[in-house]
Design a protein around this nucleic acid. Structure first.
Lengths: 225, 225
DNA sequence: ATTTAAATATGATATTTATCATGTTTTAGT
DNA sequence: ACTAAAACATGATAAATATCATATTTAAAT
């Protein structure tokens, strides 16, 4: 089993605020898991009892709507932590996490880390900062959902993925999403996504290489009204 | 100037986690403000440098969209705290706060309370819990915006206000919002709100007394599809 | 009290988006 | 390599919602 102290991934999340001693203890009790693409990491309404540190891969966090459709609330990638809220309260998760590609996760039981949250103020403050950021992002999403068209939201989703998850060597977006996934981010019908993507292609904003999407005119996408 | 130690309002927010000594110090440095209906408490993008404890009244938190329309993200009432995020980071506010009725606020400078955040773990944990709750709520709003119709969202907005802000003695909703405010919560055009409210009236779900709305058939509203 | 402005209301119409139908392409499994 | 299933694509149409126009009512200001 690899050691947390030497794990690079930790630098990208709140665990960086832990002391060497705290890390050693966590390293000793953590368990590693391999999750295949499409597999569910945890279900909506599940009790987590710990946090996941994403060593590799990307997953989607979704919430089931009353109409039976899934809504993607957030994409989470390597370096980030899942299930922070399980540390704060005993509530169940409000989202389901599903792997978008093969993933490697480390699970740290709540019991082993809850004391650090209480005693290491740097750690707590870092988690607070993360939550504050998440909250600000959520506010932006709400405004976009409420005020922008499907076309605009899809353009922004593409830009967002480009900015936050980067591209492959050939310039295609590194996170591979189905049209249905895009629909679930944008909050629209799959057919609408397909139509708008076709338009974007005709307008020269994007191109496709196999299933992958490549942004060809980033300023064009930004200007979409 | 009234004293924080004796203030009932404090019981409803994170300040309840402070010790007697901490409260005394805060009480000595806080300033009280009266805000008239319609006045702006703080602007989007402002540096706050402290938190507001709402002693009386209700305000709306809005974000200006690219299309020039305001989106109401949240209503905040007596007992709650505004500007928690200013304690966590030095970032500017991402929302504007506007009084919906006459308000009484206490302002506590960041410098006086930031040490409590670092030293009093109960206080920090309570703020963390609040943020976690806000985040879960925001997730719900995102799903509703993305997946539900204007009719459903307006019905839920009415139910939400009824549940969280209560009613006047005559049964009308105690928070008075304009049709434009409702539009800004639901994320639709003012005319659409007016039309749907008229429908709800015809269907017997609500009635109006002057400008005030009264829910007549709460289960009917809940069943709106 | 009178005027003015703002909020509410409603109709007509345009635009956006969803839904249904159907066909094609791609992927996965044997 | 072949078959079934899933994903993608596109047209036709329906439904939801926005926009524009125009009254009417209510509130605010002098």
């Amino acid at each position: 089993m690899s050691k947390c102290e030497q794990c690079i991934v930790r630098q990208f999340n709140s665990l960086k605020a832990l002391t060497k001693e705290e890390l050693l203890r966590i390293s000793a009790c953590k368990t590693s898991r391999i999750i295949k693409k499409g597999e569910v990491i945890f279900e909506e309404g599940e009790s987590l009892n710990g946090i996941f540190c994403i060593k590799d891969g990307v997953c989607k966090l979704t919430k089931l709507s009353a109409n039976g459709k899934d809504q993607i609330i957030k994409l989470v990638e390597k370096g980030q932590i899942l299930g922070q809220r399980s540390l704060i309260s005993d509530e169940r998760t409000n989202l389901r996490a599903t792997a978008l590609n093969d993933m490697e996760l480390c699970f740290i039981p709540k019991a082993e880390i809850i004391n650090d949250l209480k005693k290491n103020n740097n750690f707590t403050m870092d988690i607070l900062k993360n939550m504050a950021d998440d909250l600000r992002e959520a506010d932006d999403v709400i405004v976009n959902m409420a005020q922008k068209s499907v076309r605009q939201r899809l353009a922004e989703a593409l830009l967002d993925i480009d900015e936050n998850f980067g591209t492959n060597p050939d310039g295609t977006l590194s996170v591979l999403l189905s049209r249905e996934d895009f629909a679930s981010i944008v909050g629209t019908a799959t057919e609408s996504v397909i139509r708008v993507l076709s338009q974007f292609k005709k307008e020269g904003f994007i191109s496709t290489i196999g299933k992958y999407i490549k942004i060809e005119d980033i300023d064009g996408l930004r200007r979409v009204e």
